[in-house]
Design a protein around this nucleic acid. Structure first.
Lengths: 225, 225
DNA sequence: TGACAAATAAAACAATTGTTTGAATTATTT
DNA sequence: AAATAATTCAAACAATTGTTTTATTTGTCA
């Protein structure tokens, strides 16, 4: 069938429709979810024929998998897990960077803003792709977070309080995305509209979580250190 | 068309198919969402003909609205906002009850377990019904929570930290439901499987949030009291 | 019991959607 | 330039789904 992907050597001007399909599909999938997105709408936005998806990707599901992979790659390329935090930074500083990076990915605007939305949607309404998404993307991210929190709590990373606290941090980050219509209807002022808003939200979540964990680790006092 | 709903006086044995449709629709809608749920599957589970939905409710969307109303009524009937907490309880105790009640509604098992799932789904993938859901159900709930947190933080209930902290509490509660497949794949031990698991999760969220807010309010020290 | 309304059932309708087909067009190679 | 492969396109197919229609059954009341 399509052999060009195996020998794409500088011929980026080729595969134009394929790339257009990936971009359009990313938008449509992130807006409507896998099942509600229609191949016709995707092809329309890509300026391609209805048969283009099946010709270039085989079927709708394979296209979706390719879109997820593409988004994963692009999102982490733009926002590394800890942004520009140096290895020597304190765990508190790293946590702040982690939260800001995650929120930035989730609330990214611009032509790639659908990356975060697609990931959020996959977490809520999982397809067959969830397993690999968790293994390749979410687990490594979680392990970084576990490491940071273990340092803050002064616990081994496998301690249940570490995992629970990590989920508490993550939950606050994804909440504003998952429940955006709800939050917007309830208290519009808290929804971040720009980079400044994202930073403000990140600051709150960081403060809240650090205060919580300081309270936790104060119970440990005397056990370690 | 159907006039029995206006004069249903003790004739509960009537409207059997109507009730069966409501129950079946609740299950199917909560499992698949509004658009992915099919009238045929609902009618099949209700043991009714395909035309039953249109005969008894007019169309699929009206059925969905009726199901939401039904679920709202039943869920709050079973789990009041603060459970059995007395009016004189401390705000910390009230917060604990609030969180346990919310989690109980979300993770309720049994024949009515779809109530919480349906609400969660409506928050994530809203239909036209979201507005009334927020006004009738979520806003009153939030105002109770704001009041509790305002007491804990010793702030006026309109303070931005109160609203942000309330969202931090809510986010932790809904996270395990919204991201259940993800959490299960990442760390299965934390997903509550029974009443005891729900209580344990509620305890963690309460501890975490109270510790966070104690840290917050300590910054206020000297300003009030 | 018989007339009338309510409820149910089977079938069909109309719209949507993923996919396939086969011809036409474009690009690449010999 | 001719031949071959790759791509695009219009049309149609097959399956699904919300809704409607029409006939039949059930229940109620005079």
């Amino acid at each position: 069938m399509n052999v060009r992907s195996f020998l794409a050597d500088g011929k980026e001007h080729q595969d134009a429709t394929r790339r257009h399909l990936l971009e359009a599909a990313g938008e449509v999938f992130s807006e409507l979810g896998f099942r509600n997105a229609t191949v016709r709408e995707i092809c329309h936005r890509a300026g391609a024929n209805v048969a283009a998806v099946n010709y270039h990707f085989g079927d709708k599901e394979t296209l979706y998998l390719e879109v997820l992979r593409h988004a994963h790659h692009k999102a982490l390329e733009k926002y590394p897990l800890l942004l520009d935090a140096p290895e020597s930074a304190s765990p508190e500083e790293k946590l702040k960077c982690f939260i800001l990076s995650l929120l930035s990915r989730i609330f990214d605007k611009g032509p790639n803003s659908w990356h975060g939305r697609l990931m959020s949607r996959e977490m809520i309404e999982p397809t067959h792709a969830l397993d690999s998404l968790v293994q390749e993307r979410i687990r490594p991210m979680s392990e970084v977070l576990w490491g940071i929190i273990a340092e803050i709590l002064d616990c081994p990373p496998t301690d249940e309080r570490v995992v629970a606290s990590a989920f508490s941090v993550l939950s606050q980050c994804v909440f504003y995305k998952h429940c955006r219509p709800c939050v917007g209807s309830l208290f519009p002022g808290l929804l971040p509209e720009n980079e400044k808003g994202v930073a403000r939200l990140a600051a709150h979540i960081t403060d809240f979580s650090l205060a919580a964990m300081r309270g936790f680790s104060s119970k440990n006092r005397g056990k370690k250190r």
